[in-house]
Amino acid sequence: MIKISNLHAYYGTIEALKGINMEIRKGQITCLIGSNGAGKSTLLKSISGACNRSGSIMYKDNADISNLSPQKVARLGITHVPEGRHVFPGLTVKENLEVGTINWHGFFGRKPYQKEMEEVFALFPRLKERENQLSWSLSGGEQQMLAIGRALMSHPEVLLLDEPSMGLAPLVIAELFEKIVEINKEWGLTILLVEQNAKLAMKTADYTYVLERGNITVEGPSAEVRSNDMVIKSYLGKFANTK
């Protein structure tokens, strides 16, 4: 679906990604793990066009998207759910979802988006209950659901999720990951998942990449990566094999 080769990203003179090669396969959940500051968010931003990058990013039938602006990338069907949720605080839940439609609706369009909204509400009934509440007052978990729901409104084919579990309680995380699997399996979306919670991420994902200081160091089917010695030592800890 997306094939990245020799991708570099820069913040001023700092090189945050140093030649990344990776592939996100259609219909799969691909996960990206790595410690703080490894460049995970930067990689997502490079795909969605939110930072300076060079190299090649091929999307679908060989269209290079590595020099497109975020708006253009969003219009192609790649939607980035940024780290830290970023809901629009002064808009209600419903209005936040409406903003998600901009990439196919257009400023002055008249296309209805009722159906999309009902589908999102069916996936996250908790949002339906709070549809007229201003989103700054939602709980962290609800805000994350809203951020994902808003992305789903944009008719995406690929979803880039940046640390959806950040700051959430274990029960809420479990519920959220069920939904992510549902989005992948039932809705048929391709997902690139960035996670700190390596164990959970690798359990959920089909394929795993490990990113360290701007380089991919380990990659493979999740089950394989999970038994890699280096990964066990640095990301899973000594309780890796306990359930």
């Binding site: 969605s48 939110a50 708006q71 369009g109």
Partner: peptide
């Protein structure tokens, strides 16, 4: 609809941009 897009862009231009709201407009 336009007004809500404008509000969104004002409240969080980064997120609005990622969704495809053209902030220059």
């Amino acid at each position: 609809y336009v007004g809500k897009m404008m509000q969104a862009a004002c409240q969080d231009s980064y997120a609005a941009n990622l969704l495809g709201v053209p902030s220059i407009l």
